[in-house]
């Protein structure tokens, strides 16, 4: 892959992530979910996208789903501190 192509892919991944966070912070949940899913289409191992989807599920009281999403974020990045804290809290640790 050419450098230009890689850069554009990274940029697109980052911008969808930022857009997702923006929508989430403004309570546009459906749009936020769509953006985080786009991030995962570009990069299926983006831990932050899984973490944010976990937050959305938790805030919607979908606890099992949230646990699974935090666990996925942690599988990708075992040193993801906040994702671990969230998962442990939901498990009851």
């Amino acid at each position: 892959m050419e450098n230009k192509e890689i850069n554009s892919k990274v940029n697109s991944e980052t911008s969808h992530l930022d857009m997702g966070k923006f929508y989430f912070l403004n309570n546009n949940i459906d749009e936020a979910v769509a953006e985080f899913k786009k991030v995962l289409e570009i990069n299926p191992v983006n831990a932050e996208a899984y973490y944010n989807l976990g937050l959305i599920s938790e805030s919607g009281n979908k606890i099992d789903e949230a646990k699974e999403l935090y666990a996925r974020a942690l599988n990708i990045n075992p040193s993801y501190k906040i994702a671990r804290e969230k998962l442990e809290k939901l498990i009851g640790l």
Binding site: K21, F24, L25, N27, E58, S59, I82
Partner: peptide, 14 residues
């Protein structure tokens, strides 16, 4: 209600 916010470390949180 769970409210999203940006924490001190710049991460999204609720």
């Amino acid at each position: 209600r769970q409210i999203p916010f940006i924490n001190d470390e710049g991460q999204t949180d609720i």
